[in-house]
Design a binder for these strands. Structure first.
Length: 943
DNA sequence: ACATTATAAC
């Protein structure tokens, strides 16, 4: 090109007129050399500087060609409108270039449209035009459609040439139809056409890409023997095949026998990069530098990557900066490579600097650089920086791939929890509707699976208020999550919307609806379900029904229901037995529970550790200690591992009965078996010691906490305080209270009250009142008192108590509170009992310690046989092999319709915060009746 | 004016 330009300069200098033909030849040269930038510069220069020159069709055709070759078809329309203004009309060559450009930019439809337009204008298409179209279709992967085109071509008198067939061969190879590709070649050879290197290089390349190197080499030998010259392109295909197969050494060997080009060296470098062979990389880099080849962009890109690999980051950057001087523009891959490398080095600021440079170039329309950087920043926890990159995508109206926004949602969740995700949604409202809707759908589903129901629901509402479609999957996940978390109020309307939009076509929808119904009305659900499923009722519905009955306190009905299901051949599963056994044991019906353990075995389902824990707990609660310990020893001897729950049940029971040494023995046994004690376990022992006057032992246990990284909770503190008070050591109790109060830790209700009573008994009225007041500051205690007040329909207590407390009527307070306490202890109703234990335990203690939560988490897949023998007499249990590990043995977290842990929502607590100031003020003014009204309103609102 | 080979993708 340099020579051509020199001649051109001489021409203009001598006043030789530059015509369309001369100009077009030079632009064509730039086009073939893929130097569109320089070509356009030249074109502009000639138009401006050469007087009397007006670009004609030939030059314009070459400009279109040049743009098309580099995928810059977007700039073509400006040119065509200018032509129309001047009344110029394209010929078949012009349209050929135009169509070619579209085809190479992956715009098949536009290409076909221009081709059709040309025909409409009465311009006949020649072989080249048809070949261009055929090639475009082959590239897109539709060789089949091409066959029809071939016929049309013949009819129009344009005979396909070798180039047409080459495109066809390429099309078949793309679809991996090698047989068809080869048959074309054979037919050509039969008709006497001399097939050239182009065709063979395509075939060889395909063979290599398929890993069929043997066939590739034999074909290579075949064409060499035919006397067809084999050039660098074919060798490069083979070299590339070897590199991809992991044999870069062999590839290098071949490359040494030929004169390599940019393709050769970039392939080899990439091969060694993949093999992480630093010496290999350096050797190729050396050969490349001494070869005297002028680098192209791809070679630079690979070389930059290679330099980072051999830890020469500075050299990589310097090459990057030298590119423009070499006449090369860094492209998307260049920026991706260098930014990615910077991130891997932890140089995020430099990565962002490079990105800022990249984003200024508006001609880039890829999202890869953005995605890569966002991913790396998210991984490094730099969410804010990542969001800024995402903003650039939005502003450029580029469509990020789903991985990118998912990554951002995950990172925001990690950083800021559900609120973080909601904030992110708030920030990306500028996205186009369709994309925003996808982001919201994903966010809602994601939050649902993480059990962030409220946030998931909020996102769902955003989708709905914007009138976007909510996919069945998003609905389903949200509903599942609500169902799992006992969020009954939200389910009903949502389910209604879901069914209105998506109908009841999917079986999973029917199941879910049945489960929901079953929690309300067992019979209706079963009828509905058997109707929808042609008579068969899925196990999940029956499970839901049993759970519903138990929740309603009708455990005996649940029991009969299960028995009925067994008899009628309905499906039964482990979870159903688990629910009923637990309920029976809790209700004191251990006999029936054991009977169920027997009958479930007949159904081929074997009791697991969860069920045993229930039985164990039932036995303990009803004083059957001998049986309980027999069962424990049986478990120990079989391969059934007792869990922390098992130990908690026994330690708790022993402590309650005052067998403190035995309890401690079990505690040690548990530790020896590799189960780390938690605060909850310690609490059992500490309160045991305290209740029996052994406060020192309790404190000694407390002193272990720090070494074990455990924190005492409200329960721990309450136990120690009441222990001190029990011994009359109010001073010690007060000191202990203050010590933790300073650290913002308070005891539970029992602890508070012991201290209040202790101080009161010693006549320390002021202090007693102070502690009481302190207690009312404690939300958990207030919550407990209120929930009892709510349940037993007494006057709302907090208002009365706090006002009495302010007035110094401690006696009155004491009476009320002792009543409250009595209620909480004597209540034998299983439901309120549940509520109480749930509340008495401060939130967020180790969850795994709650046997009811555990039953969901640990529902293990271990099957075994428990025989009631082990409870009465012979302790021999028969261990059965894990023959039937039925799917329904495990309640997977996604399929669970049972939520025993979440019996009481948090709403009350929120309401209390809102109402409290008003109530407090009314009480202080003596307006107790009004205060009570306010409290009732509060309770109703939270209901 | 039409046909062949190499690089990036959390």
């Amino acid at each position: 090109m340099d020579g051509a330009l020199k001649v051109f300069d001489i021409m203009t200098a001598r006043g030789c007129q530059v015509d369309d033909r001369v100009c077009s030849v030079i632009v064509s040269g730039f086009s073939k050399a893929r130097k569109s930038e320089a070509g356009l510069d030249f074109y502009d220069r000639v138009r401006k500087d050469v007087s009397g020159f007006e670009p004609g069709l030939m030059t314009l055709t070459m400009v279109v060609n040049l743009l098309g070759r580099e995928g810059r078809t977007g700039e073509v329309p400006e040119l065509t409108t200018e032509m129309e203004r001047k009344g110029m009309m394209g010929d078949e060559v012009f349209y050929g270039s135009l169509v070619h450009g579209y085809m190479r930019s992956g715009m098949l439809m536009e290409g076909l449209r221009e081709h059709g337009l040309m025909l409409e204008k009465g311009i006949a298409a020649d072989v080249v035009n048809y070949t261009t179209v055929i090639d475009g279709m082959c590239r897109e992967g539709s060789v089949e459609k091409v066959m029809g085109f071939l016929d049309e071509m013949e009819r129009m008198g344009a005979k396909p040439n070798l180039i047409t067939y080459t495109s066809l061969v390429g099309g078949f190879c793309k679809r991996n139809r090698l047989e068809d590709a080869f048959s074309i070649v054979r037919k050509l050879e039969q008709t006497g056409v001399v097939v050239d290197e182009y065709v063979y290089s395509i075939l060889i390349d395909r063979l290599c890409k398929n890993g069929d190197l043997d066939k590739a080499f034999s074909l290579l030998g075949e064409i060499e023997s035919k006397g067809i010259k084999v050039g660098i392109v074919t060798y490069n295909a083979v070299i590339n095949g070897l590199c991809k197969a992991g044999d870069t050494a062999k590839a290098v060997e071949i490359s040494e026998a030929v004169t390599g080009d940019n393709f050769t060296y970039s392939t080899l470098l990439h091969g060694y990069i993949m093999e992480e062979d630093m010496t290999g990389v350096m050797a190729i880099k050396g050969r490349l530098e001494t070869s005297g080849i002028a680098f192209d962009v791809v070679t630079c890109n690979v070389l930059i990557k290679a330099l980072f690999m051999i830890k020469k980051a500075d050299d990589a950057c310097s090459l990057f900066h030298r590119m423009r001087g070499m006449g090369l523009s860094p492209n998307t891959v260049t920026y991706h490579t260098i930014i990615d490398a910077m991130c891997k080095l932890g140089e995020f600021d430099r990565a962002v600097e490079l990105f800022d440079e990249y984003k200024k170039d508006t001609s880039f329309s890829s999202t890869v650089v953005h995605s890569g950087l966002i991913g790396a920043l998210c991984n490094a926890g730099k969410v804010i920086m990542a969001e800024q990159i995402f903003c650039d995508l939005i502003h450029k109206k580029l469509r990020p791939d789903s991985c990118t926004y998912r990554k951002l949602i995950h990172a925001n969740f990690k950083e800021g929890g559900e609120q973080g995700v909601l904030n992110f949604i708030g920030k990306v409202g500028e996205l186009d509707m369709d994309l925003f809707s996808s982001v919201c759908s994903y966010a809602s589903s994601f939050l649902s699976t993480r059990d962030c129901c409220q946030a998931a629901l909020a996102v769902y509402k955003i989708i709905r208020t914007q009138f976007f479609a909510v996919s069945s999957k998003t609905f389903y996940k949200l509903l599942k999550s609500l169902l799992r978390n006992g969020n009954e109020q939200a389910i009903q309307p949502l389910l209604g919307e879901f069914i209105k939009i998506h109908g009841l076509h999917e079986p999973r929808t029917v199941n879910m609806l049945s489960c929901h119904l079953s929690k309300k009305n067992v019979g209706e659900a079963i009828r509905f379900s058997s109707y929808m499923n042609n008579g068969s009722v899925p196990v999940s519905v029956l499970r839901g029904a049993i759970y519903a009955l138990k929740k309603e306190g009708e455990i005996l009905d649940a029991y009969s229901f299960l028995k009925e299901a067994e008899k009628s051949g309905f499906p039964v599963d482990l979870a159903m037995y688990s629910i009923v056994v637990e309920g029976l044991c809790r209700g004191g019906n251990v006999e029936k529970a054991l009977d169920l353990c027997e009958s479930m075995k007949k159904e081929g389902i074997h009791p697991n550790i969860i069920i045993h824990n229930s039985v164990l707990s039932g036995l303990c609660q009803h004083g059957c200690f001998t049986e309980a310990f027999r069962l424990f020893h049986y478990l120990e001897r079989s391969n059934i591992l007792p869990t922390i729950i098992t130990y908690a049940i026994l330690i708790g029971a022993l402590c309650r009965e005052g067998f403190l040494d035995d309890a401690y023995h079990f505690f040690q046994k548990m530790s020896n078996n590799g189960i780390r004690p938690t605060t909850h376990i310690y609490n059992l022992l500490i309160s045991g010691y305290c209740n029996y006057g052994l406060t020192e032992k309790a404190l000694e246990l407390l002193s272990h906490f720090e070494d074990l990284f455990l924190l005492p909770d409200a329960f721990t503190l309450g136990a120690v305080i009441s222990g001190h008070c029990l011994k009359g050591d109010t001073e010690a109790a007060l000191g202990f209270f203050n010590e933790y109060h300073c650290k913002d830790m308070v005891p539970d209700f029992v602890g508070f009250m012991s201290l209040v009573k202790g101080l009161y008994a010693k006549g320390r009225m002021e202090e007693s009142r102070g502690i009481l007041r302190e207690m009312f500051q404690c939300k958990q205690v207030v919550e407990l008192i209120n929930s009892i007040g709510h349940e037993v329909q007494t006057e709302s207590l907090v208002g009365l108590l706090s006002s009495a407390c302010e007035d110094g009527r401690i006696d009155e307070v004491m009476t009320i509170l002792s009543e409250v306490r009595l209620m909480s202890v004597s209540s034998s109703d299983s439901n309120s009992c549940n509520t109480l234990t749930h509340l008495k335990r401060p939130p967020r203690i180790d969850d795994t310690c709650d046997p009811r939560t555990d039953s969901e988490q640990v529902l293990s897949s271990v099957t075994f046989d428990v025989s009631s023998n082990c409870l009465h007499g012979s302790s021999e249990g028969t261990l059965q092999p894990m023959t039937e590990r039925a799917d329904n043995l495990c309640i997977s977290s996604d399929d669970t319709d049972i939520d025993i842990g979440n019996l009481l929502g948090k709403s009350f607590y929120d309401e209390f915060d809102t109402y409290y100031p008003a109530i407090a003020s009314l009480c202080s003014k003596g307006e107790l009746l009004k205060a009570n009204k306010a409290i009732e309103a509060m309770i109703q609102n939270s209901g």
